[in-house]
Simulated assay, not measured.
Amino acid sequence: MRQSGTVGFWRWRRNPLKRRSDVVEAWVVLVVAVLLVIGLPLAGVLAGLRVDNELQRQREERQRTTAVLAEDASAWQAGRYVRFQATVRWTGSDGKEHTAKADVGPDSRAGSTTRIWTDGKGELTGAPATETEAASASALAGLLTMGGTGAVVLGARWVVQLGIDRHRAVAWEQEWARVGPQWGKRLT
Rank of each mutant, 00 (worst) to 15 (best):
E97C: 08
A73V: 07
G163S: 06
Q85F: 09
L35F: 06
L17E: 07
A169G: 06
L49S: 08
D22C: 07
T130E: 02
A33K: 02
V152W: 07
S136C: 02
V68E: 12
G95L: 11
A151P: 00
V68F: 06
Q161G: 10
T118Q: 15
L49I: 06
L140Q: 09
E54C: 01
A177P: 00
A67W: 03
A86L: 06
T66C: 08
T149I: 04
V152H: 01
V45Y: 10
V34D: 01
W10C: 09
A127L: 07
S4Y: 13
N53K: 13
G122P: 04
A141D: 00
T132M: 08
R14K: 11
A151C: 01
G122L: 08
P181Q: 09
I116V: 10
R168V: 08
A26R: 04
V152F: 10
R186A: 13
A169T: 07
A100C: 04
F9E: 08
V88M: 06
A169C: 02
R19E: 13
V23C: 10
Q174G: 08
V160K: 04
T132Y: 02
R59P: 00
G79P: 05
L42T: 10
R2E: 13
D103H: 11
R64V: 06
G148N: 00
Q161D: 05
S74G: 08
V88I: 08
L154K: 03
A127P: 09
D165G: 02
S138F: 06
L40T: 00
D107T: 13
Q182E: 14
S112D: 13
G111F: 07
W76Y: 13
Q58A: 14
T99H: 14
A102L: 05
V28F: 06
R80C: 05
V170T: 12
G148D: 02
L17H: 10
K185Q: 13
A43I: 08
A139I: 07
M146N: 01
R50H: 14
V170K: 13
D94Y: 05
T91M: 12
G39M: 04
L154Y: 02
M1N: 11
R14D: 13
R57F: 08
G148L: 06
H167G: 14
Q58R: 13
V34W: 02
V153P: 02
S112N: 09
G5W: 09
V104D: 00
P106L: 08
L46K: 12
W12T: 08
A75Y: 03
A100E: 11
R57S: 10
A47K: 02
V31F: 11
W183Q: 11
T113D: 12
T113R: 15
K18L: 14
L46D: 02
R11C: 08
A156K: 01
R20V: 15
S93R: 14
L144M: 11
H167D: 11
T125E: 05
L55E: 02
K185A: 13
T125W: 07
A43F: 08
Y81T: 15
E173I: 07
D165Y: 09
A43T: 03
L69I: 05
V153Q: 03
G79D: 09
V159W: 12
E123G: 09
R57D: 09
G48N: 02
E97M: 12
W12V: 12
L187Y: 12
L35T: 00
A135D: 03
G180S: 03
S21D: 04
L69V: 05
K18R: 15
V160E: 01
A78Q: 13
F84P: 05
V37A: 15
S108N: 04
T99C: 07
G150V: 01
L154R: 04
